[in-house]
Design a protein around this nucleic acid. Sequence first.
DNA 1: TAGACAATGTGATGCATATCACAAAATAAA
DNA 2: TTTATTTTGTGATATGCATCACATTGTCTA
Lengths: 225, 225
Amino acid sequence: MQTNCKTCPFKTKATSMLCDCSLESLTNNHLELKLKKGDSIIKQGMYSTNVVFLRTGLAKIHLAGPYTEQIVKMVNAPSYLGLPTTFGSKINQYSVTAVSDVEVCFIDLEVFQTILDENKEFTREIIQEFCKNELEYFHRCANRTQKLIRGNMADALLEFADNIFKTDTFILPLSQAELANLIDTSRESVSRVLSEFDKDGIVRINGKSIEILNKKSLQLISQNG
Amino acid sequence: MQTNCKTCPFKTKATSMLCDCSLESLTNNHLELKLKKGDSIIKQGMYSTNVVFLRTGLAKIHLAGPYTEQIVKMVNAPSYLGLPTTFGSKINQYSVTAVSDVEVCFIDLEVFQTILDENKEFTREIIQEFCKNELEYFHRCANRTQKLIRGNMADALLEFADNIFKTDTFILPLSQAELANLIDTSRESVSRVLSEFDKDGIVRINGKSIEILNKKSLQLISQNG
DNA sequence: TAGACAATGTGATGCATATCACAAAATAAA
DNA sequence: TTTATTTTGTGATATGCATCACATTGTCTA
């Protein structure tokens, strides 16, 4: 479903029927931005009347837990962010921060709502995305809490390799402290487990660069705990 | 938005515009059932081409974790269940089981899809529901893993009282073993914490009957951990 | 090229809670 | 009612991991 649109910024092979520019309303109702790694895209607690389209790059969704900030999801482009705010209180309930350089479009929520109303295909895709995410959360709930740290770390590495970067050699986009927030553990444990994996020849670590040497082992560790 | 419909079974004050029976397609395309406590509504791993409307009663969504079955969400009527299956593989990715007697309607997914296409209001409500749930999962991720058992138990009791039964005196719909699966702990710890709460005068427990005596305390315990 | 600050490695210690092991009670079945 | 089965209460023990403490390395800035 690649639709390289000439008049609007959505030139991506997205989930997005937005690129069907019969939706000319969009062309005049968005703000396009390039943001740098570390920049805030959505800030918890702030008022907002926009949906954000993450056009390129990688971001983390995170929010304040009772003690520390928790990363609940990594999101790579293309993806829509901030919908719950749109339909809810207009106060952002979570933060989104770029972990790579990103391109984003801010779309007025009323415009977005109109598009939803007028475009069945797009609506269907959005709902499908929600369904996919819901399943992800369910599995996360069932897995994260039952597995030991090694299992969760294995899952995180496999997720980066298989779903996010789609290669077994990549640069970790998160610090060890952030990784700890993602897999519900402490910074120190992340450090220990990573060097264990390296020592056991499962991965090769070089600063922030990671190469997965033995994916089968990782999958086994993921299953055992 | 109460619409007591005469021709279709959806006579509930639902999220549901389905009761707007301009949707006569529905009237002839559903199966209505009364199920008993403990009956399975949706079974993980089974093929299905239905969405389920939970008309009355209370259910639990649960799925197989690496070690034990995990309860990921309690759902009370009115609510739609099984949408991810609809839009996904048609193999149920989770189970839903009645924890009280329930009334459910099985709706063919093509009929459901048609309704979505034809009814903007309904679609909007469904999306809103997804958004609400997503926020719930995020908060669950951030809370459940950071809090101690007492905090999670306090949350569960407050959830039952405030959101599910809407009264401070209720009958626990789950066994202690199920409660343990809900708040990520062991059966024994559930037993211990509940009797602690009782001993401290925070709740009064009598078999499965629970009365919350000191809600402020529960909220404090929830915050501290 | 220094100096400062952030990110990482690694040992020692403590603690929350899982697990094991039964007893007691409640519920279901016969 | 009696028997069988599930649910619950409670102690003792084991353990995975958080926390603390500090050394080391890496990275930015002036």
